[in-house]
Write a protein that binds this DNA or RNA. Structure first.
Lengths: 209, 209
DNA sequence: GCATGGTTTTGTCGATTGACAAAACTATGC
DNA sequence: GCATAGTTTTGTCAATCGACAAAACCATGC
């Protein structure tokens, strides 16, 4: 006695939905096993689609990696921009407060989505074509923006006496650590020591003094 | 007219030599591509041996990973111990100087042999059997030792007002960054900014104040 | 209802994976 | 020089890899 209005055959997902599920799955897989350690079959399986659909919607495995990284950086940008716009309105001409928010937002994001940090980490061992692509399309622009903001902080008399490059290294080296290495650090240091709030506060004290 | 005393057929390597070459090759491979991304065939190829020799000398791929990690930690321990023994003689009852040496030695080692840091980094995403093995056999003992030394530093009035866990996170998060991510950071920040001397000095200033 | 184009499903290709077995080789002791 | 143990080499196995082709499916406009 099935109700007729409830169709038995499963609804075909929209193209965007399928692509999104593929990218989410690819992000997790690439972040866990690296490019060579990941297989398009497993990525498709975890996304609930067939392997050939990756070829159709994205292209080759290399294409999938790039599209996935673009997707992750876009999510980071949206996360930071949205919250920062509000902070800029409230604390205009208070660069120190704004920069503390940048740190907090970055830590928040790497805690919620450690995949991006991990993919960067794994890829950055040797200089490869993928690394050059990362540099050109994502990393250099971000570093340039950070340099501007940090210069304002220092001009306003805030922050420790360190260069923007040293701050950058803290942002990509220390910020993701408790989340990108959660499998090791949570059992070692305890859950409560690996919360984004606590780690952001630690980061702020390290950098701002 | 070959001189007879120079034997043409290549000398059979000693068992230790073969094992050592396998471990060096495995370290590089695991550090670059992770466990799943590495193949015993490529490891053997880069070591100049046949794939089946890995099975004979070490065992399974999983065994190879563990033996390789043991080998790398042993090299780290030797590097730190040897130099630290001398430092302890010279600066007995000067824990601050000794700890600065610890930082320097650790940075030196991760610059000379980034493989260990990278393998830890890659593995530590999720809690797996290999991570538990790492914790039990290597990481927990090191953290315990660090806690003792840091307590002495703080008791002597040195170092910033931070916990040993925060120092530990700097050691595994920030210390390896310029070398474990050299493919990205050397083109980005320049070679001179990624030297062990300079990075060790930066680390000391971050931690000791 | 039927044709069209976008999408999914199935099947297959050569190449590569880890593991194992057996044979060939080499050093050593006697 | 010969037997033995240690080591290397070769070959093979099922399983899996990325990529592609073709067929089946489905929503939409007409």
């Amino acid at each position: 006695m099935a109700v007729k209005s409830a169709p038995q055959r499963k609804r075909r997902d929209s193209s965007d939905e399928v692509l999104h599920r593929i990218l989410e799955s690819a992000a997790v897989q690439f972040a866990t096993f690296g490019f060579e350690g990941s297989s398009t079959r497993t990525i498709a399986e975890n996304a609930g689609v067939h392997q050939a659909q990756i070829g159709y919607h994205v292209g080759s495995k290399e294409d999938l990696w790039k599209v996935t990284v673009n997707f992750l950086f876009e999510r980071l940008r949206a996360h930071v921009d949205q919250a920062l716009k509000q902070s800029l309105d409230e604390s205009v001409s208070e660069p120190v407060r704004v920069f503390e928010d940048v740190i907090r937002l970055h830590v928040d994001h790497t805690a919620k989505h450690p995949e991006l940090s991990r993919i960067m980490l794994i890829e950055s061992a040797k200089r490869t074509a993928r690394v050059d692509w990362l540099l050109k399309n994502h990393v250099r622009p971000i570093l340039a923006a950070l340099e501007l903001v940090w210069a304002e902080v220092r001009a306003a008399g805030g922050g420790r006496d360190v260069s923007s490059e040293e701050v950058f290294m803290m942002m990509i080296g220390l910020a993701p650590t408790p989340f990108a290495q959660a499998g090791l650090l949570r059992p070692l240091l305890g859950r409560e020591r690996c919360t984004p709030e606590r780690h952001a506060q630690t980061m702020i004290e390290w950098i701002m003094g």
